[in-house]
Amino acid sequence: MIRSMTGFASGKGAFGPHSWTWELRSVNGKGLDLRIRVPEWLTGLEVALRGTLSKSLSRGNVTLSMRLSRDEADAELALNEAAMANAMDALVKTQQMAEARGVSLALSGATDLLAMKGMMEAGTDADDPGPLVAHLTSKFPELLSAFIDMRQTEGEALAGVLTSQLDQVASLTEQAAEMAAQRKDKMADALRENLARVMDNTQGADPDRVAQELALIAVKADITEEIDRLIAHVAAARDLLGQDGAVGRKLDFLMQEFNREANTLCSKAQSADLTSVGLELKAVIDQMREQVQNIE
């Protein structure tokens, strides 16, 4: 089953005082480009997530972003000793300045100091992020699974479109083969007439050399090989669409081969009808190539 390189998944969860939301999204790309945005203090999390993504995906520009928040109501409060020391130094200095001017100030109590902004702060897990990192790592496969499911769903839709386009290519190739067969006798008669005309109006020409030149013209107008290769390419593309795993690069290369045969067919057509079929082939192949750019 083929997968699209376009996908999106989101999730959320909580662990202790922490809650998070994360999003995983991707668009098409030549290779696998991973961009992971997680808090730096969650040591080891990015490495773990990058490893999991690298094992599961082959192509695409993939972005993982996470927002982490902490519920301060459930967090343990800790004294900001540096802020408290600065506040007490400021009180001592203020008291000394007041006494020097004969001003009496009311004494401040511990409650007053603790009520000052910045004296009490929520404890942090930055010193021990291990439990949170382990929990996030264990929950990530759920997000990744939803993401891959979406890419597979998109891939199934792409496979349907490509199958329909391959049917068109096969039908047009069959039309071209029928037209080539119908014109074969006419081309042979025309060559014989041209040979007779040349021999009647040319003195001293080597009949064998003239025949070789006319035969070469006939070969250059023969599209049998192009028809055979187009049929083979259709079969190869159908086979790739039925395979599992990353087949996007192989399909992209095959589209180049399709286009090459269609171009050659047009150059050899020598008839308006066959040229029209060749141009239709090129249009369908171009549409296929656009779709293939989204396949992993």
Rank of each mutant, 00 (worst) to 15 (best):
residue 269 A to L: 10
residue 275 T to S: 14
residue 238 R to M: 09
residue 3 R to W: 10
residue 121 E to D: 05
residue 196 A to Q: 11
residue 111 T to W: 12
residue 243 Q to F: 00
residue 210 V to H: 04
residue 295 I to F: 02
residue 62 V to D: 04
residue 65 S to V: 13
residue 182 Q to M: 10
residue 160 G to E: 10
residue 290 E to Y: 11
residue 9 A to W: 10
residue 208 D to Y: 04
residue 255 M to V: 14
residue 245 G to I: 12
residue 232 A to Q: 03
residue 5 M to V: 13
residue 108 S to C: 09
residue 64 L to N: 02
residue 161 V to R: 14
residue 17 P to E: 13
residue 33 D to R: 11
residue 164 S to R: 07
residue 114 L to C: 13
residue 11 G to M: 13
residue 39 P to G: 08
residue 247 V to G: 03
residue 145 S to V: 00
residue 172 L to T: 01
residue 52 T to A: 14
residue 110 A to F: 01
residue 148 I to M: 11
residue 227 I to C: 10
residue 51 G to H: 01
residue 10 S to L: 14
residue 236 A to I: 04
residue 18 H to P: 02
residue 59 R to M: 08
residue 67 R to G: 13
residue 55 K to C: 03
residue 101 R to G: 05
residue 246 A to H: 04
residue 278 G to Y: 11
residue 136 L to A: 07
residue 52 T to D: 12
residue 284 V to T: 13
residue 138 S to H: 09
residue 68 L to M: 00
residue 193 E to M: 09
residue 47 V to R: 09
residue 210 V to Y: 10
residue 156 E to D: 09
residue 36 I to H: 10
residue 157 A to M: 13
residue 210 V to L: 06
residue 180 A to Q: 14
residue 219 V to R: 10
residue 46 E to R: 14
residue 2 I to H: 00
residue 283 A to H: 03
residue 189 D to H: 02
residue 239 D to S: 10
residue 95 Q to Y: 06
residue 193 E to H: 15
residue 205 A to K: 01
residue 153 T to R: 02
residue 41 W to I: 07
residue 174 E to R: 15
residue 285 I to T: 02
residue 241 L to G: 04
residue 220 K to R: 15
residue 125 D to P: 00
residue 261 E to R: 13
residue 196 A to M: 05
residue 188 A to D: 15
residue 213 E to K: 06
residue 259 N to I: 03
residue 216 L to D: 11
residue 127 D to C: 14
residue 232 A to L: 09
residue 251 L to T: 07
residue 183 R to Y: 07
residue 265 L to S: 06
residue 46 E to S: 13
residue 272 A to H: 07
residue 214 L to C: 04
residue 67 R to K: 06
residue 190 A to K: 11
residue 256 Q to K: 09
residue 235 A to T: 06
residue 117 K to G: 09
residue 279 L to I: 11
residue 194 N to R: 09
residue 240 L to V: 01
